[in-house]
Simulated assay, not measured.
Amino acid sequence: MPASPDPTPQPAFVLVRPQMGENIGAAARAMLNFGLARMRLVDPRDGWPNPRAVATASGAAGRVLDHAGIFPDVGAALADCDHVFATTARNRDLTKPVFTPEAAMARAGEMLAQGRRVAVLFGPERAGLENEDLVRADALISVPVNPGFPSLNLAQAVLLLAYEWRRAGDATPPERMAMAGTEFASKIEVEKLAEHYEAELDRAGFFFPPTKAEGMKLSLRNLWFRLGLTRAEVQTLHGMLRQLLRRGGSAG
């Protein structure tokens, strides 16, 4: 088998008897999207190499196909593996542990870190893996999909597992702020904005009656500091007020 283009420990994704070259190419793209490069093909229906697979892989993902291992049967494809997961949409009356994609890829990462070799089996488009394939697996992976329509396209299934693999070892925070070329305003910048508005509103008689003026100013200050304004937004708000005052005939 050709050497993997990526030596990083990772599971091998084994496509068993895939029928359409387009799905093989799309699977290669999905794998590379999430940092996976070890593809194995078992008896692809239309032979190999497949021009439709290459066309669908498009660009960099073609290297996944270039290094894909080609095997005559599932046993040969798994001969060097220590642990095998198999994807299936239904219970085939086999007694095996069943994992969600998230849990399976987390477990795969743990085993790979221990030096074990892990593979994930994906069945052909028409009917998925047969019992003869599933018996070779140590565990099954079942996606919690709509029970009324459980079938996933081959490339979709590969994408789902590849995403969970990436997510299991990724440190990306679940939420971040995209700053669009700016940064948050400092406290003093927000303070100056608050003073600008407060002074003009005071001049316009907004804080009325006098007995409520301090409470109104406090609420307004709280609003400015709660907004989480960027420097660009602070400058825009200053400019808006100045323009309104000019149009209203005030010196500002």
Score class of each variant (00 low, 15 high):
F71C: 00
G128W: 02
L112A: 10
G215V: 05
S4E: 00
V158S: 07
G47W: 04
F85D: 01
V190E: 13
D73M: 05
A157T: 06
A28R: 05
M216S: 14
N222S: 15
D82G: 09
P210T: 12
V14G: 00
E183C: 09
F34P: 13
N23I: 08
P174M: 09
A213L: 09
P173T: 02
R246C: 11
L36K: 01
P97Q: 07
P97R: 11
G47H: 02
W224R: 01
G69Y: 00
H67L: 03
D43I: 04
A106Y: 12
L41H: 00
A28Q: 07
P51D: 13
T56A: 13
A86M: 05
T100P: 04
D170E: 09
H238L: 09
Q156P: 04
L154N: 02
G21I: 07
G115C: 10
A199R: 12
P124V: 07
K217C: 03
N91M: 08
L121T: 02
I70A: 00
Y197V: 10
L36G: 01
G169H: 11
A251D: 13
G205E: 00
A113P: 06
V143E: 08
Y197A: 13
T88K: 03
F71G: 00
L244W: 13
R166F: 03
M240L: 12
D43H: 04
G239Q: 14
G252E: 14
D82N: 14
W165V: 10
R38P: 04
L161G: 07
V42K: 00
T56R: 12
P18M: 01
N153H: 06
E233Y: 08
P174Q: 08
D93G: 07
L121F: 01
P173A: 10
L161N: 11
A55S: 11
P2Q: 02
P18H: 06
L94V: 04
T87L: 07
L94K: 07
R29A: 01
V54G: 06
A113F: 01
R90I: 10
P51R: 08
E233C: 02
